[in-house]
């Protein structure tokens, strides 16, 4: 069963294949998550989200999934995502 009480934030790019796989997996698992497609953000808003992402992943790579502000999963890692969220 998916744990719906966890706070799940996905930093992604709208054009990225691995980000798409991550989004599909989260939907499949019926996880509620907040998603930022950073390439679609502009100006200050993009900067703000990038600063936020930097705290979890200094390399600023995508996808980066953050669970409860603590667990950080960089790249598409199906096993890890399932382990943490189901």
């Amino acid at each position: 069963m998916a744990d719906k009480n966890k706070k799940v934030v996905l930093y992604a790019l709208s054009t990225c294949g691995w980000c798409r796989k991550t989004k599909n997996l989260l939907s499949q698992l019926s996880i509620n998550y907040q998603c930022f497609d950073v390439d679609l953000l502009k100006g200050e808003e993009r900067e703000k989200i990038l600063q936020e992402l930097k705290k979890y992943n200094a390399n600023l790579s995508f996808p980066t999934l953050v669970i409860d502000d603590q667990i950080v999963i960089i790249g598409y890692d199906e096993e890890k995502i399932k382990k943490e969220l189901t």
């Binding site: 790019l13 054009t15 990225c16 980000c19 390439d39 600023l60 790579s61 995508f62």
Partner: peptide, 10 residues
């Protein structure tokens, strides 16, 4: 105007 990698923030 160029093929920037789709998985990186250009």
């Amino acid at each position: 105007g160029y093929f920037a990698c789709p998985c990186r923030l250009a």
